[in-house]
């Protein structure tokens, strides 16, 4: 996705007009055009702003215009995400506010080498929802666990989780068989563990497990091909 520069920092529109073309890099399918698979999306198209740039603009200079653009794009998605998981209208509205405020406050912790903007915001929404609605904590793993220090560093490829990977995952999801992508949407948006999904789809637990495993294998395979 990219944001049209015309709605950028100096314009201060009351309602930011967000031009997004999520992941469809201009030139699209025929894949021949230059820069279609560039390593550095920012450098590749100087007139485009990616949400990663906007989060960094907040981190560096508390850029309110950048926040408006992010809000216009992501707040409705947070609301939709929480609503699909069963929250009431007002609760979803409040949660969208909280999540976007967290984006503002924690922008300094965002690291584009570790996650794309939508992944980062997804994880914030997931966690805020768990603490506001379920009133639970979500234990986070510790990538710096001392138990790991003596171990080898992972191959760089393995931790690749940035925008480029995001675009690859997007294409990979589009190529999954429908029954597998449906399962993933259920898993991510209905707050249902795979056991509950099996019950509701009236499928044996083993079938659900093997579909998830198949889908993940396929995703990994597609990601490898794209590298």
């Amino acid at each position: 996705m990219s944001f049209d520069q015309t709605a950028g920092p100096d314009m201060a529109p009351a309602v930011p007009s967000v031009a997004f073309a999520p992941f469809e890099v201009d030139g699209g399918e025929d894949g021949g055009s230059a820069g279609g698979k560039g390593d550095d999306p920012c450098g590749a198209a100087a007139d485009e702003l990616f949400p990663e740039d906007l989060i960094e603009a907040i981190a560096v200079r508390q850029d309110r215009e950048a926040f408006k653009l992010l809000f216009a794009y992501f707040a409705p998605r947070v609301k939709a995400f929480v609503r699909r998981k069963g929250a009431a209208e007002q609760v979803a509205e409040d949660l969208a506010q909280e999540v976007m405020l967290t984006v503002w406050r924690r922008a300094g912790q965002f690291d584009r080498r570790k996650a794309a903007a939508s992944t980062w915001i997804f994880t914030i929404a997931r966690n805020r929802r768990i603490d506001m609605i379920r009133r639970e904590v979500r234990p986070e793993f510790d990538p710096e666990d001392p138990g790991l220090r003596a171990e080898e560093e992972p191959p760089a490829d393995d931790l690749l989780a940035d925008r480029r990977q995001q675009e690859e995952v997007h294409r990979a999801v589009a190529r999954l068989p429908q029954e597998q992508s449906q399962l993933m949407r259920l898993a991510y948006f209905e707050d249902k563990s795979h056991g509950v999904i099996a019950e509701e789809l009236d499928l044996p637990l083993g079938t659900v497990k093997s579909r998830i495993r198949l889908a993940m294998r396929k995703l990994r395979q597609i990601l490898k091909e794209e590298d």
Binding site: M1, P22, F23, Y73, A75, P76, R77, K79, A80, F81, R83, R84, A92, E93, A96, K114, A115, A116, S118, T119, W120, I121, F122, T123, A125, R126, F141, P143, L148, E151, E152, P154, D158, L159, A161, Q165, Q166, V169, H170, V173, M184, R185, Y188, F189, M216, L219, R220, L223
Partner: peptide, 26 residues
């Protein structure tokens, strides 16, 4: 480490599905 990478992939997948949602206007 292996599961850390797998969780990163699964979160990226979550990010993609999240990004594909039709937003609900506020």
């Amino acid at each position: 480490r292996g599961c850390q990478a797998e969780v990163a992939r699964l979160e990226a997948l979550g990010g993609v599905l999240f990004d594909e949602l039709d937003g609900e206007p506020l």
